[in-house]
Design a protein around this nucleic acid. Structure first.
Length: 502
RNA sequence: GUCUUGUUAGCUCAGCUGGUAGAGCACGUCACUUUUAAUGAUGUGGCCGAUGGUUCGAAUCCAUCACAGGACACCA
C-alpha cells in the first residue's frame, strides 16, 4: 500500500528521470556555506546599493521548496531552512543548457530539498533574494505537501504526522524551541544554585511518590513485574538521606489515566529537593525561578493566556481554608465541619463519595470553587494532612502540613512541601493509605518499606517541589492543549491491529 | 468512563427537504525573463471513515463500530 497514491507515483517517476539524467535524487554532498537567516542579515546592505546587487558575493544555501512560481524562462522559488525563508530567482540563461527546461521545470517541485548557489540581489518589489547560477537537488520528496495557503490544520494529522506539522507551520517550531529553552533554563537555574542533577529509576518495584495508577511492565530475566514510575520523589529523598543536599531531576513520569487537554500518559516534570530548607524557602526560589525564566525568554511580565491576563509580578500566598471563603465564596462556618461541607456540596449539585474525611472534603471545595479563579500566580498553603501523605505536619497545627501548590491561570503548576522525615509518622500515613486502598481508592499510596527504612537512618529537614514542565510551557506559549507542547503526543493507533491480550 | 460535534480528492472546504460527486490549491499539458497564495487556458483526479439497515434509489435518513476535536468526571 505504501506508494500507491497517484501523486506519489508521479513523483517517483520524476526521481527516476533525474537519476537517468545523472542527477542523484538523494545526493548527500551538500556544500551549504550559510543559513537563510545569516544570508539575509549579511546581505541586508544590498538594499542600499545603486544596482541592488553584488555579483562578487557568492553563497550556497539549502532548503525545502515551499513555493514555486514558474514564469516561462524565469522562476521564483521560496526555500525554507530551519532559520527562515529565502526567495531564489532562477533564470534559464544562468543555468547550464537545457537544465532549466528539462530538469528544473519538469522534475523539481514543491517539497523537494534543493541547494542553490548564487549572488545576492534585491528584486523590483524590494525583496532581498538570491540570483541562482547553480541548482542541485539534494532530496526528492515523493509525497506532496499539503496546500500552500491553508497548510495542514487537521489536528489529527498534525499530531500523528508531527513532521508534516513542523514543515508547514513555522509557529509550531517556535513553540518547541521555547519548550527546549524552558528546560535548558530550568537546568541552568538549579545548577547555578548548586543543585546536582541526578537520574533515578524509571522502573519501580513499587509505584510511589504520587497518587496515580501506574503502567505495568515485565522483567523477563527476573520474572517480575515493574511499574513505570509515577513520580521520582521517593528516590530523590533517598538521595537526601544519603547526604546530597540539593538534587533535581528533569524527566518523564507515566500515569495510566485519562487523556485530555492537560493530561498525557507520559509527561515531564522537574522535582527538586533541598536539605535544611522549608517550604517557605521554596516559595522564594519559585518566584526567583519565574523571574529568571521571564528574563531569559524575553517575556512580558503580564502574559496573555487565552482570554486571561496573568500578572507574573503579582505572586500571592493564601492558606487553603482561607481561600475557600475569600476566593471561593464558601461560608466560613461551613469549612471545618464534615457534615456542613457535604450538605453544602449537595446543595450545589456536586456528588461526594461517601466516607470522605474533612481534608478530602476541603480539597473538594477548593477544586470546585477556588482553583479556576486563581489567575495570577497564587501559592495555596496549609494543606490538610489527609490529602498530603508525604508532607511534614505544621508544628503549630498537626492537622495541616507545611505545603503549597502554585496555581496560575486556574491551573496547578507546582506542588511543594517541607518533607515528612519522621519515619514513624510516614509509616503510619502509608498504613492509612493502605486502608484507603482496601476501601477502594486504587490510587492510594503503596507502603514502601525500603523508603521507611531509608528515613529511619535520618533525612535532614528538607523541602521538595515538583513543577509540571508541560503545563508550564503551555502557560508560556499560550497553548491550551498539552498535545501542542508535546512533539509526539499519545494517540490511539489508527488500525485496530494492536489487539489487547486478555 | 459519559455526553457532544466531526470524518467527502494529496491539502483546505462546499454538497439544501434522499435522485449517479463540486470548488480552490496541488498535479498534467500549453503560454509567459522580476513574481509574492504569480497569472491565463485546458485536463486528470473520489469505495463520500467502516459495517449493517430503511428505500425503487443513500455522501445525505437510522444503528453499530473506529478515529479525532470539544465539554464533563479523575488526576499533574
Amino acid at each position: 500500500m505504501a506508494f500507491e497514491n497517484k501523486f506519489i507515483q508521479q513523483r517517483i517517476e520524476k526521481a527516476e528521470v533525474l537519476r537517468e539524467a545523472g542527477f542523484n535524487p538523494y545526493s548527500n554532498n551538500s556544500q551549504r556555506n550559510t543559513t537563510v537567516e545569516k544570508y539575509l542579515n549579511v546581505n541586508s546592505d544590498i538594499q542600499d546599493k545603486e544596482d541592488k546587487r553584488d555579483e562578487n558575493r557568492h553563497y550556497i544555501v539549502s532548503g525545502r521548496i515551499k513555493l514555486l512560481r514558474i514564469m516561462g524562462k524565469a522562476s521564483f522559488v521560496k526555500i525554507e531552512d530551519e532559520s527562515g525563508m529565502l526567495q531564489i530567482y532562477i533564470a534559464r540563461d544562468n543555468l547550464p543548457e537545457d537544465f532549466y527546461n528539462t530538469i528544473f521545470k519538469k522534475n523539481i517541485e514543491v517539497g523537494d530539498i534543493i541547494e542553490v548557489s548564487g549572488y545576492p540581489f534585491v528584486t523590483g518589489k524590494g525583496e532581498l533574494s538570491l540570483h541562482a547560477n547553480e541548482l542541485k537537488l539534494l532530496t526528492k520528496a515523493i509525497a506532496p505537501l499539503p496546500e500552500k495557503f491553508h497548510g495542514v490544520t487537521d489536528k489529527e494529522i498534525r499530531y500523528r504526522k508531527r513532521y508534516l506539522d513542523l514543515i508547514m507551520n513555522a509557529e509550531v517550531r517556535k513553540t518547541f524551541q521555547t519548550r527546549s529553552k524552558v528546560i535548558s533554563l530550568t537546568r541552568r537555574f538549579f545548577e547555578d544554585k548548586g543543585f546536582l542533577e541526578v537520574e533515578t529509576p524509571m522502573m519501580h518495584p513499587i509505584a510511589g511518590g504520587a497518587n496515580a495508577k501506574p503502567f505495568v511492565t515485565h522483567h523477563n530475566a527476573l520474572g517480575i513485574d515493574r511499574f513505570l514510575r509515577i513520580a521520582p520523589e521517593l528516590y530523590l529523598k533517598r538521595l537526601i538521606v544519603g547526604g546530597f543536599e540539593a538534587v533535581f531531576e528533569i524527566n518523564r513520569n507515566f500515569r495510566n489515566e485519562g487523556m485530555d487537554a492537560t493530561h498525557n500518559p507520559e509527561f515531564t516534570s522537574i522535582e527538586f529537593y533541598w536539605a535544611y530548607k522549608t517550604y517557605k524557602d521554596l516559595i522564594e526560589i519559585t518566584k526567583e525561578y519565574f523571574q529568571y525564566l521571564f528574563e531569559h525568554l524575553n517575556l512580558p511580565t503580564i502574559l496573555p493566556y487565552g482570554d486571561m491576563e496573568v500578572n507574573f509580578e503579582n505572586f500571592t500566598e493564601v492558606p487553603l481554608i482561607e481561600s475557600l471563603t475569600t476566593i471561593g465564596g464558601v461560608p466560613a462556618e461551613m469549612c471545618n465541619d464534615k457534615e456542613s461541607i457535604v450538605a453544602f456540596l449537595k446543595s450545589k449539585n456536586i456528588t461526594v463519595k461517601p466516607g470522605m474525611n474533612l481534608g478530602q472534603l476541603q480539597g473538594e471545595l477548593f477544586d470546585e470553587f477556588v482553583e479556576e479563579k486563581l489567575i495570577d500566580p497564587t501559592f495555596i498553603t496549609e494543606y490538610p494532612v489527609e490529602i498530603s501523605p508525604l508532607a511534614r505536619r505544621s508544628d503549630e497545627n498537626p492537622a495541616i502540613t507545611e505545603r503549597f501548590e502554585l496555581f496560575i491561570a486556574g491551573r496547578e503548576i507546582a506542588n511543594a512541601f517541607s518533607e515528612l522525615n519522621d519515619p514513624i509518622d510516614q509509616y503510619e500515613r502509608f498504613k492509612g493509605q493502605g486502608e484507603a486502598k482496601e476501601a477502594g481508592d486504587d490510587e492510594a499510596h503503596e507502603m514502601d518499606e525500603d523508603f521507611i527504612d531509608a528515613l529511619s537512618y535520618g533525612m535532614a529537614p528538607t523541602a521538595g517541589q515538583g513543577i509540571g514542565i508541560d503545563r508550564l510551557v503551555m502557560l508560556l506559549t499560550n497553548e491550551h492543549s498539552i498535545r501542542d507542547v508535546l512533539l509526539f503526543p499519545a494517540m490511539k493507533p489508527i488500525h485496530n491491529d494492536t489487539q489487547e491480550q486478555e
